[in-house]
Computed example of a mutant assay.
Amino acid sequence: MKAEKLDLTQEWDKTFPRDERVDHEKVTFVTRYGITLAADLYKPKGAEGKLSAIAVCGPFGAVKEQASGLYAQEMATRGLLAIAFDPSFTGESGGQPRRVASPDINTEDFCAAVDYLSCREDVDPDRIGIIGICGFGGMAINAAALDPRIKATAAMTMYDMSRVTREGYFGSTDSKEARDEQRRAWAAQRTADYKAGEYTRAGGVVDPLPNDAPQFVRDYHDYYKTPRGYHERSGNSTDGWNATGTISFMNQPLLDMACEIDTPVLLVHGEKAHSRYFSEGAYERLRGDNKELVIIPGASHVDLYDNRDTIPFDRLEAFFGKSLIR
C-alpha cells in the first residue's frame, strides 16, 4: 500500500468549537482501492491503554469539519477514540475525479477506517463501531452487513441513497418511465462531459431560496449556506456533486443484506424529518433483537446535524458503552 501525500490543513477550521478535554490530530489511511483518506482524530485527553473506538462520516455532501467532526469530538469527551473522515473524492481525502459517490467505494471507506483503527496501539480491535450521518447512514449499515469487525452501528437521520435515487422522494419517480428519463439525462451528461474534457457540477444546496422551497430545503440552506454550517470544502455548501456523481446508486441497493447483520444497530431520526421513512424502512429490513429505532420528538432532519439539544449523545454513549465496552 502506498499512501498519497495529502495537503492537510493544520489550523482549526471546523464549524464547531474545539473542546479542550480532547486531544486532536490529523491522520490518513488507505482504502483497498488505493485512495488515501483524511481524518480528524479525537482522543480523550490523558487516556491510557487500549480504547474503544468509532469512525464517523457524513452527511452526504458534507466534510469532516461539519457534523461528523462534531459527533466524533463529543464521543471522545465520553471516553471513545473517534475519527471523523472525509470519504473518497471529497474534502481533504484523495481520489479523482472529485465529488463522485459510490455505494461500493463509500462503504469501503468505513471498512478502511476500521482497518486503520484496528492497527492502532491505543485501540482494542475487538471494540470498534461506526456512526453514519444522513446518506452515510445507509453506507454504515451496508458496511456493518459486510464487515464483522464492526461491533456496533449508529445511523443518524439516515438517507437510503439507493432508494431515493431509484424512487425519488416518497416514491414520486418510482416507475420505469421516470427511471428511463433519468438514465437518458445521465447518458447525455456523460457524453457532454467527455466531449468537454471536464465534469459538470450539479450545484450544491439551492441559494438563493425560491419562495416555494419546501421546508426541508430551507433547513438544508440554514445549515450549509449560513455561518452555522458553511464550509468551503463541502459540496453542499458550494457547487455540489458532479452531475453524474450518483449514477451507480440506481442499480445497487444498499440495504439488501441488512437482514443478516448480527451486531447492534441504532437508528435515530427526527419526528418531523422529511427523511424519517428511510430509517423506518431500514428498521423493517433488520432482523432479530439487535435493532433499535429512536424518534426524537419535534426534530427535523438537519437538527441531528449539530443541534446539541436534539442529538441524543447520552443515548449514543449508552449504546456504544453497552456494545463496545466489556
Rank of each mutant, 00 (worst) to 15 (best):
Leu8Val: 05
Ala243Phe: 07
Gln182Asn: 09
Met257Val: 12
Ala72Lys: 07
Ala3Ile: 12
Asp314Thr: 14
Thr90Ser: 08
Ala155Tyr: 01
Met161Phe: 01
Asp180Val: 03
Arg98Asp: 04
Ser275Asp: 15
Asn236Cys: 14
Asp314Met: 09
Ser300Pro: 11
Ser118Tyr: 11
Val164Trp: 00
Ser275Gln: 06
Ala196Ser: 12
Asp122Met: 07
Ile295Thr: 11
Glu292Thr: 10
Arg184Leu: 07
Lys50Leu: 08
Ala258Asn: 07
Pro59Val: 05
Phe16Asp: 04
His274Tyr: 14
Gly138Asp: 09
Gly298Met: 08
Pro59Gln: 07
Gly61Lys: 01
Asp219Tyr: 02
Phe85Asn: 04
Asp40Gly: 06
Val206Tyr: 00
Tyr194Gln: 15
Arg32Cys: 10
Gly245His: 00
Ala72Glu: 02
Asn106Gly: 12
Thr28Glu: 03
Glu92Asp: 15
Arg21Asp: 14
Met75Thr: 08
Leu324Glu: 11
Thr165Ala: 12
Ser172Trp: 08
Val123Ile: 01
Val27Met: 07
Leu8Gln: 04
Asn307Arg: 10
Thr238Leu: 02
Ile130Tyr: 00
Asp306Phe: 11
Cys259Pro: 02
Ile325Glu: 15
Asp222Gln: 11
Pro125Ala: 08
Ala202Cys: 12
Phe85Ser: 06
Asp180Ala: 11
His274Asn: 07
Cys119Lys: 15
Arg285Asn: 08
Gly288Trp: 03
Ala82Thr: 03
Met156Trp: 08
Ala155Asp: 01
Leu37Ile: 06
His269Glu: 15
Glu65Cys: 10
Val100Glu: 04
Val294Ala: 09
Ala192Gln: 13
Asp147His: 08
Phe60Met: 14
Leu255Val: 04
Tyr199Ile: 13
Lys5Trp: 02
Gln182Leu: 13
Tyr223Met: 09
Arg98Glu: 09
Asn251Thr: 14
Arg78Lys: 03
Arg120Cys: 03
Ala82Ser: 13
Pro87Gly: 11
Ala72Asn: 03
Ala140Leu: 04
Thr15Trp: 03
Leu255Pro: 02
Pro17Ser: 05
Ser172Asn: 09
Phe313Cys: 11
Gln189Ala: 14
Glu271Asp: 09
Val294Tyr: 05
Gln66Glu: 13
Gly245Ile: 00
Val302Ser: 06
Leu316Glu: 12
Gln182Asp: 11
Thr244Glu: 10
Ser248Pro: 04
Gly281Ile: 02
Asp239Gly: 02
